[in-house]
């Protein structure tokens, strides 16, 4: 097996007396979609916040392409090639698609930060990059507010890839969307996967979505890994069982029926 693009070893995080994560080992490979599943409070968010540099781990190490890294800020993580697409932090609705795409990394000519924007060029790049992952926006100067939720996710994904992400962390990219847009996002993920050089960490609640697109799975419950495996190794029933944090669905059904 090739070297994982991201590997964590014994990653732990304590918030005061509360142990959010306890010894997480994770391997993520290029060209794969890695689903990170777990119930609310399982530690998914804490884990991705550590991977994207928002939190620092209490102990444990992150290896990017074999090299140990300690991210102090989100910028460190993005420089190491980890791009995070948050569910609601992705874009600014009142700004144009292009201005969002290049937000914070504008192409300019002249001394920063008063350099003139190279608007034509940025419009072109935005349009081309969006087409590459499957959305043809007619007017890159339209406000992002006019786009659907799925298109906004796509914009954020295209942006992360264009600015050099080797690992994309997608935080519940489908959870706030309607059925059809969920499929759009899943298709976008598969298109990114098809490039072969990018790994996707897919955080989700939805086992159906994860089974549709993912190559590899890691299940978290109460801050620990309770199961992992590839698509072939797992079966649908296992997933549901692991999603619920190891509780038997049959038990749950009985409990519910008893009320």
């Amino acid at each position: 097996m090739a070297e994982p693009i991201i590997r964590t070893e014994g990653l732990s995080k304590k918030f005061g007396p509360f142990t959010a994560l306890n010894g997480i080992d994770l391997e993520v490979y290029k060209g794969e979609i890695h689903a990170l599943l777990g119930d609310n409070g399982a530690g998914k968010s804490t884990l991705i916040k550590i991977l994207s540099g928002v939190h620092q781990p209490t102990s444990g190490t992150i290896y990017v392409e074999g090299q140990p890294h300690a991210f102090k800020t989100p910028r460190d993580a993005s420089q190491a090639g980890i791009g995070t697409v948050y569910q609601d932090l992705a874009v600014n609705p009142l700004m144009s698609v292009t201005r969002n795409f290049f937000m914070g990394r504008e192409l300019t000519k002249g001394p920063a930060p008063f350099g003139l924007l190279r608007m034509e060029e940025m419009d072109q790049i935005t349009h081309d990059e969006m087409v590459k992952i499957g959305i043809d926006i007619s007017d890159p100067r339209q406000a992002v507010g006019t786009m659907s939720g799925g298109q906004r996710q796509t914009l954020a994904i295209a942006r992360a890839i264009y600015f050099g992400a080797k690992v994309l962390i997608l935080d519940e990219p489908t959870s706030a969307l309607g059925q059809k847009q969920q499929l759009e996002v899943l298709k976008t993920m598969r298109r990114v996967r098809a490039r072969g050089d990018i790994a996707i960490i897919f955080i989700t609640h939805n086992e159906v979505h994860s089974m549709l697109v993912s190559d590899r799975f890691t299940f978290l419950a109460l801050g620990e890994v309770i199961g992992k495996g590839t698509h072939e190794e797992l079966h649908g029933t296992d997933i549901r069982h692991l999603m619920a944090g190891g509780v038997e669905m049959a038990d749950l059904e009985q409990e519910i029926a008893a009320i």
């Binding site: 932090l89 992705a90 874009v91 600014n92 609705p93 009142l94 700004m95 201005r99 290049f102 937000m103 914070g104 504008e106 300019t108 002249g110 920063a112 930060p113 008063f114 350099g115 003139l116 924007l117």
Partner: peptide, 18 residues
């Protein structure tokens, strides 16, 4: 027309996203 302008819009629109 400038980068600073884009930052001003971004800051006011959604600060955390910016």
């Amino acid at each position: 027309r400038t980068q600073a302008g884009n930052w001003i819009y971004a800051t006011g629109d959604n600060r955390e996203s910016a």
